[in-house]
Design a protein around this nucleic acid. Structure first.
Lengths: 220, 220
DNA sequence: AAAGTAAGGGTACTTAGTACGGTAGCACTG
DNA sequence: CAGTGCTACCGTACTAAGTACCCTTACTTT
């Protein structure tokens, strides 16, 4: 037996920065961002901690690289599609990917995002808007709004109390209905209802966001 | 001389959880979230590390408490104002506060946000919408959109390359104009222009977001 | 005065990042 | 074929940080 295994157990292919980052993403998905330590990462690759430093510059570099991996998973927009369709598809894809890797947002604001996949991605989206006749200024606003919506939605999705608890409603029990009447009304009247899923709200609201982007274009 | 000082140097009043958290916020503002360690926090209060554990449960509790402090800084919406004015003011306030404490977003998605100030805040905003006749479902959508915009905007503001570098343009120099033509066009044609400020885009776009919320209401 | 309690601290263990300096196998050179 | 050097990997050890456990001092309460 030549190596330990814990989460990913990637086959014993030639090592590389790519494979290290992929293992890091797998680890974060499986056990959370906090479980991504140089030591456990090395362990999941059958290596000793110091060996990783041949492929990455350090922990920070691993985190950088992980976000770039995530961006690489997001579908690039179709350059020939109408802007609205292209943006909609890209928003849905981004949301799906970020929901799959919820730890990514936590890292995002740590660094200026200069990974190759990240840059290529942003460039492609900007291209869609510019080709559709958006001015530079409106393109900036539109992209800001679209991404703000996606990031913000995913962030809220991550924050929501995951009531995988008792059948009734875990959140409502904690809530003081006197002090927070509206929150209580929510827990009881909407979130607690069978069939309600916060995630399902993404697309209906997205359509209004796209309307708003259209309005931004009119403004000039 | 009875105590060390480093960042906050709060006067020697009676200690309390409140004061510990306030010192933590001051530390994060001054030196970044990474500088908030139990040890440096104790030091900034003239205490030894272990003494803090009489006021907080541990590092996680400190982080929880810090986000709640931040929420406490956001103006509560005026319950008697029309929904659009109330939401607009609250969004501007939230954005200002979050820009002042950019580290807050990093912590936000770590925990389900159950601080008192946080709950009171959300409850007040929900109240504005419900009293204005929004249904539960549309209220949820509207609030999601508004907060997504604020969070997402602040997040992007934090990520933006702060070109406080050379006079020309630091970002453009790094960018490969062949590989990323649209990004390059941006750096040169908009971001690099004198007088351009990303932060100034917040309010114009916010107005379109409020339009979108109005449209959500129509949909029912 | 005795006893209890609150506030603060000392020591030390554990986990994590990483600097520094190996070592072993292979490739290529003269 | 010996030597030279490179590549991949590893062992050791230092530092920073969180925190469990137990102690001391001082003040309060009866």
């Amino acid at each position: 037996m030549t190596h330990h295994d814990s989460a990913g157990v990637e086959p014993k292919l030639p090592l590389s920065r790519e494979r290290v980052l992929r293992a890091a993403v797998a680890l974060a998905d499986a056990r959370g961002l906090a479980a991504v330590t140089i030591r456990s990462l090395a362990d999941s690759l059958g290596l000793k901690p110091m060996s990783l430093y041949h492929y990455v510059r350090g922990k920070d570099d691993v985190l950088h690289g992980m976000t770039d991996q995530v961006f690489a998973e997001i579908d690039l927009p179709d350059p020939s599609a109408p802007w609205r369709d292209a943006l909609r598809a890209r928003a849905v894809s981004a949301r799906t990917v970020l929901s799959r890797h919820p730890w990514a947002l936590t890292i995002l604001d740590l660094q200026p995002a200069t990974g190759a996949a990240t840059l290529r991605h942003h460039d492609a989206v900007l291209g869609v808007l510019l080709r559709a006749g958006f001015s530079l200024r409106v393109t900036a606003r539109a992209y800001t709004l679209l991404d703000a919506y996606v990031y913000g939605f995913v962030l809220q999705e991550a924050v929501l109390p995951t009531d995988a608890g008792p059948p009734g409603d875990a959140a409502a029990a904690t809530l003081d209905a006197d002090r927070y009447p509206h929150l209580a009304a929510f827990a009881a009247g909407l979130v607690g209802q069978p069939g309600y899923s916060f995630g399902d709200e993404f697309e209906p609201v997205l359509d209004r966001v796209l309307d708003a982007i259209g309005a931004l274009r009119e403004d000039g």
